[in-house]
């Protein structure tokens, strides 16, 4: 279980982005974090993975305070993070990245399985370099696969996994999330605006203007989001900068 307690974060210039986030991601469940652009969702995901250091608050993973741990330590504790913007590597192949993720040599069947889950034909991709020769959608799907390959991770964080991928691959992604949910051994935190992802969530939290404006079960929150009444300050679809 991941517990975020009063997480605060500000830009180096001083602007406060997260203004005291309290959020719990239960074991074996899929929690979706949604909300308007610029509301602080990606900042929160990066704080969980250790890319950003919070100004205040604490992060508790399976009962252990990981707030002061760096990126590597958190990864070893079981946090996996899929970047919204995938990183390209000249020289490292898709196979290299998946094997680094899995911390072991992978059979071709296993690589096929991982890439198949994100809608890629493995034979064509496993020995390709993960560089700019891949399209944005291909890179994004490989990025997601690197998280699926993390067998020792039990807290999987996906930052807008739907961005840049086609509908067919998106369907595969939904299936993969459902499989992970049914296995029940990993917790998923997905930053998303996609209704189809929210439809398979166990819990949904809405973050706007740096605060959790609503959270609860899918049955409770999703209808309210669709009606547009989860806003505390900013309506969904408007950016933080805009007039609320």
């Amino acid at each position: 279980m991941l517990e975020l307690k009063d997480i605060r974060w500000r830009l180096p210039e001083g602007e406060e982005i997260l203004k005291g986030i309290d959020l719990t991601v239960p074991d074996g469940k899929l929690t979706v974090v949604t909300g308007p652009n610029g509301g602080g969702k990606t900042s929160l995901a990066k704080i969980i993975a250790g890319l950003y250091e919070p100004c205040g608050g604490s992060i508790i993973l399976n009962g252990e305070d990981i707030t002061s741990m760096d990126i590597t330590e958190r990864a070893k504790k079981g946090v996996a993070y899929a970047f919204q913007q995938p990183v390209r590597f000249k020289g490292l192949t898709v196979r290299d990245l998946l094997e680094l993720s899995a911390e072991e040599k992978l059979s071709e069947d296993r690589i096929c399985s991982l890439l198949g889950e994100v809608g890629l034909c493995a034979r064509e991709y496993m020995d390709r370099e993960a560089d700019s020769s891949l399209s944005g959608g291909e890179s994004k799907r490989i990025e997601i696969a690197t998280v699926l390959a993390r067998k020792n991770a039990d807290m999987l964080v996906f930052d807008e996994p739907e961005a840049g991928i086609d509908l067919w691959s998106f369907s595969n992604l939904i299936t993969a999330f459902e499989r992970l949910k049914s296995e029940g051994s990993r917790s998923l935190l997905v930053i998303s605006h996609q209704e189809r992802i929210m439809e398979i969530a166990d819990h949904i939290a809405v973050i706007a203007d740096g605060k959790v404006t609503a959270q609860g079960s899918r049955e409770d929150i999703l209808p309210r989001i669709l009606k547009g009444d989860t806003r505390s300050k900013c309506p969904l679809g408007k950016t933080r900068k805009e007039e609320c």
């Binding site: 590597t72 070893k76 690197t146």
Partner: peptide, 13 residues
């Protein structure tokens, strides 16, 4: 960002 990505997989810097 390349170093950060690999660190999120558990590698040291």
């Amino acid at each position: 960002e390349q170093i950060i990505k690999l660190r999120t997989l558990g590698l040291t810097e």
